[in-house]
Design a protein around this nucleic acid. Structure first.
Lengths: 338, 338
DNA sequence: AGCGTTTGAGCAATCGATTGCATATTAAAT
DNA sequence: ATTTAATATGCAATCGATTGCTCAAACGCT
C-alpha cells in the first residue's frame, strides 16, 4: 500500500523554493519565470506529483466538477447529450458527475443536494417527469451556482436552457402523415405540465388545423409513454372501435408498443395505419417496419448545452440574463409512414 | 448570490463550545454527551448547516465517493448494473461518479487517473474492449484503493470481480439451437483476449462437442460485434455460400444486424436459420421475429458487485484476498430460435 | 480523605494547495 | 547616482473539518 505522497512542498524542498512558487508555477502564473516553471515541471514529473484536487477545491472554492442530472443515462438521447457535454468539459479540464433521477422527484432533489455538497462548479440538468416543485433548483441558483437545463425544462423556472423545437418536430411529423393520406391521427402524449409534451401536442394540433382537419379530443391519449402504455392505448383504441389511420406518438417507446399491437391484430403498417414516433431511438430502425421518427439532435444539444454552460460559468455573477436556445429537429422518414 | 456560510465554527460559536466538539457531535462520537449532541444538531438545523465534504475529504482522506468506469452507460446491461451499485451505495451514504471509457483505452486511463485525483474511496469498473495494458489499474491497487471489476475482466489482473458464467450461457444457447435442429451454427465473437468472448466461444465449442458435432473454424467469425459487423459478416457468409442453419452471436447488436440481412435476403428466421444473441437488450423483444438471447442478470450483478465492493472497502488493508463471484445467466427463448 | 477512573470537551496541528500582501533583486528612467 | 517600476519569489493566513493529545470535573472505591 504505497501512500500517495508527493505534494507541492516536496517539489519546493527539492528546488529550495516555496510551495507558493511551486503552486504558481504549476498554474502557469505569469509572475513566475519560465525558468522556474520548467524546473518545477521537471521535478513534478520526476517524483510523479499528482495534484490533490480536494485540497485545491477547498482553498479555491472551485472543484472543476460539473454535475449532470438526467432522468436516465440509459436512453440514446440522454446518453448522446452527456457525451457532448463530457467532450466539451474534458477539453476545458472539467470532469462531470452523472447522476440519474430515474424520473423520481425525491431522487432528483437528493441528487441536486448531493451535487451541491460535492461543491460542483455548476449543474446541467434535464427535469424528471414528476418534477413540479423547483425549490431544489432555486437553491442552486440562490447559491450562485450556474445552472443550465436541457430538453425537459419548466416555464416557471427562468433558467438558461437548450431545448428542441418540439412544436416544429411534431408539426412536421403530423404534416407528413397528412400528406401521405392520414385523416384521423391518434396522438400519444403525456402530462401537459411538461414542456416537451405540451409543445408536441400543440404542433400536432396546429398541423391538423393548417391542413383543414379538426382536432378530435377523443384521439388524444395520455399516458406515461412507455412501451406498455403504447400497447395498452392501442388495444383500447381498437377495442373501442375508434376509427383512425395514423398515430403520432410523442415517444418512440409508445410507438413501438403500438406497432406491436397493430401487427398482432393483423393491421398493416403503413398500409392501414401509418406511424410516427419521436426521439429516434436506435431500435426504431431495427423494427419491422422501421419506424419514422423525429430526431432530437442530441449531439448538437450536448454541444450547445455545454457551450452555454461554460459561457455562464465564466460570466458568473456579472449577468443574470438567462439564455435560451432552440434547436431544430429533423424528421427521419422510414417505412412505417410510407 | 447567497454565500454558503454555516460551518462547524458557527455552530460552535452559538453554543460556546469548540469546533472539535461540534465535529464529534455531528459524527456521533461517543466521547460527546447526548445532551451536547442534541444541542448541536438543533443549531445545525436552525442555521441550515451543510457539511463541507471537500474539507472533510481533505482532512480525513475519505471522500465517500465511488468511481464507476463503464464502456458506456447507454446500454441496458451497464445501466442496470450502475443502478444496482448506486442503490446500494446511496444507502451507505456514498455517491457514485460515473465515467465512460467509450471502449477507448486512452479514455479509460484518463478516467482512472481523474478518479484517483478526485480521491474516490474506491473504483468499480468494467474493462473497455481495447484494454490490454493494466498499469492504470495496478496504480489503483498500489495506492491501496479498493477495486472491483465486473463482467469484463482480465485474467492477468488478479482483482476481485463479479462475472457472468459466460461459458454456461453460451453452452445453453448453443445446446438450445442444436436441440431445435441446428447442425451448422455460425458464431460471432470478438477479441479472445477479452474474457467474456473467450468464455462464450468455449461454451459454443463445448456444446457442439457434447452433441457430437464438430467445431468448424470457418464458422467462427471475429469482429467488433456492433450491428454493422453483424450485417457485414452475414452478408459475407451468404456471398461465400457457406452453409449454415443457425447463428449464435456473442452480442445482441450483431445478432440484430444478422437478422436484418437474413430478412433482406429472404431467408426465414427461424425457418431456415435460427438465431440467438447475448445480452437481452430491450430491442431483442422489439424485433420481428423477437430474438432469443441470454440474460446477464444485470440487476443481480450490480447488487453483488456493490456488496463485494463495500466488503473490501471495510476490510481494507487487512486482507489482500481477491474475491470472485460468478453469476448464472438465463436463456430467454423467443421466436428467432423456435 | 485520598487516589485512580471515567466522562466530556478543549487545544492545536494537520490535510495540500491557494493567494493577498510584502520583499528582494534587477532593469529602466531621469 | 538615485528613483521608479517591473520582475520573481517568499511569508503566512486560509479553506472547513478532523483527530491525537491534554486536561478538568465528577465519580467510585477503599
Amino acid at each position: 500500500m504505497k501512500s500517495n505522497k508527493a505534494t507541492i512542498h516536496d517539489i519546493a524542498a527539492k528546488l529550495n523554493i516555496t510551495a507558493s512558487t511551486v503552486s504558481r508555477a504549476l498554474n502557469d502564473n505569469p509572475r513566475i519565470s519560465d525558468e522556474t516553471k520548467k524546473k518545477v515541471l521537471k521535478v513534478a514529473k520526476q517524483i510523479n506529483y499528482q495534484p490533490n484536487h480536494i485540497a485545491s477545491a477547498l482553498r479555491s472554492g472551485k472543484s472543476r466538477l460539473i454535475g449532470v442530472i438526467v432522468p436516465t443515462a440509459n436512453r440514446n438521447f440522454f446518453s448522446s447529450v452527456i457525451r457532448g457535454i463530457e467532450d466539451h468539459a474534458n477539453i476545458l479540464n472539467y470532469k462531470i458527475i452523472i447522476s440519474q433521477s430515474y424520473d423520481e422527484y425525491a431522487k432528483e432533489v437528493l441528487n441536486t443536494e448531493a451535487l451541491i455538497n460535492a461543491r460542483v462548479d455548476g449543474i446541467i440538468a434535464s427535469l424528471g417527469k414528476m418534477t413540479e416543485n423547483f425549490d431544489h433548483f432555486h437553491k442552486v441558483l440562490d447559491k450562485g451556482i450556474p445552472l443550465v437545463l436541457f430538453d425537459r425544462t419548466a416555464d416557471v423556472l427562468d433558467v438558461s436552457h437548450v431545448i428542441l423545437d418540439d412544436h416544429l418536430g411534431a408539426y412536421q411529423a403530423v404534416d407528413h402523415l397528412i400528406k401521405n393520406g392520414c385523416r384521423r391521427i391518434v396522438h400519444f402524449t403525456s402530462a401537459q405540465r411538461i414542456n416537451i409534451y405540451r409543445e408536441r401536442k400543440r404542433g400536432y394540433e396546429d398541423a391538423l388545423k393548417a391542413n383543414g382537419l379538426e382536432v378530435d379530443p377523443a384521439l388524444i391519449l395520455y399516458s406515461n409513454m412507455q412501451l406498455e402504455d403504447g400497447r395498452r392505448l392501442t388495444e383500447e383504441t381498437l377495442q373501442n372501435k375508434v376509427h383512425f389511420d395514423g398515430i403520432f406518438s410523442s415517444s418512440d417507446y409508445a410507438a413501438m408498443g403500438a406497432l406491436q399491437v397493430l401487427k398482432e391484430n393483423g393491421i398493416a403498417v403503413p398500409g392501414q395505419v401509418k406511424l410516427v414516433g419521436f426521439g429516434n431511438e436506435p431500435f426504431t430502425s431495427f423494427s419491422d417496419p422501421t419506424i419514422t421518427t423525429v430526431d432530437q439532435r442530441s449531439i448538437s444539444m450536448g454541444k450547445i448545452t455545454a457551450e452555454m454552460f461554460f459561457e455562464i460559468l465564466n460570466n458568473k455573477g456579472a449577468e443574470l440574463i438567462s439564455k435560451k436556445t432552440i434547436i431544430k429537429p429533423e424528421l427521419i422518414i422510414r417505412d412505417s409512414s410510407k
